[in-house]
Design a protein around this nucleic acid. Sequence first.
DNA 1: AAATCAATTTAGCATGGGCTAACTTTTTGC
DNA 2: GCAAAAAGTTAGCCCATGCTAAATTGATTT
Lengths: 147, 147
Amino acid sequence: MAGGAVLPTKENHAETFARLRDAHAREVTEDYVEMIADLIVEEGEARAVSLAERFGVTPATVNNTIKRLERDGFVSSRPYRSIFLTEAGQALADKCRERHQIVYDFLIALGLDAKIAEFDAEGIEHHVSAETLEVFRKFTEARKTGD
Amino acid sequence: MAGGAVLPTKENHAETFARLRDAHAREVTEDYVEMIADLIVEEGEARAVSLAERFGVTPATVNNTIKRLERDGFVSSRPYRSIFLTEAGQALADKCRERHQIVYDFLIALGLDAKIAEFDAEGIEHHVSAETLEVFRKFTEARKTGD
DNA sequence: AAATCAATTTAGCATGGGCTAACTTTTTGC
DNA sequence: GCAAAAAGTTAGCCCATGCTAAATTGATTT
């Protein structure tokens, strides 16, 4: 069965994949600002060592990435000090947290296990359009207020 | 509101992100074998020029990628000739096509526009666990057979 | 205050996945 | 059958994202 997806025209393919590549470029940025925001809440500050531990990468990698985020205006940091979000970084973190929560809640509303919902949300959140996110949100809401 | 996601323990974070990085490493491979399979069906063969056009990249990039896929055992090709899937490549393409269709159908079942469903499916499909995929499939089925 | 330990940074490397420009091979059209 | 066009390949470049090893800085402890 599986009702035959509308085949995108050739011309659309290229655009689709270009947008996907862009999306991927933002993923690491989003994961970092989200995690930095979490750390500031949970531990009072965001240290490179904590980021390294949570992402499962080396401190050197964190350093690299933080430099990129700083270059791109999402964080500020001084040598040997902890890491701060700029306004842009905070705004992005807020957006990401909200989006993550909506995706997570949606997966839970569908009946998925918390562990799986958490993992899948982490992957899916970066690839959900505003429209789809809104549909997810409404669906969860409907389930909560009693179908 | 937004029912408070279970916070993964610190130890789980690293594993989550390691798996996400793995998932990303497979995305391009999956997109390529899927597209190669499509081209063989649609045009009788998969040429580098068609892949380049559909992905919106240069022929040189396609060449690079095909070399990697060949190294990894998913495709076979001879210089200046078209590209073939190995058994492993075909199996992966089949799996991806099915998964893509399930995600697409699910988004459609949720009421999303075909264009948006197609784009979001392309991003989401690589990040859906077997469990979530099964829930998607059942949901779509339920909607079809009349709530 | 010095020594030690933890955290951070730097240097140098690899791979993936893009690019352009130049070149070779294959296909096509006369 | 040859010339031009199309397709494919190669070389050399770039950036993102990872790594290890070594150097440096900051914090702690005696």
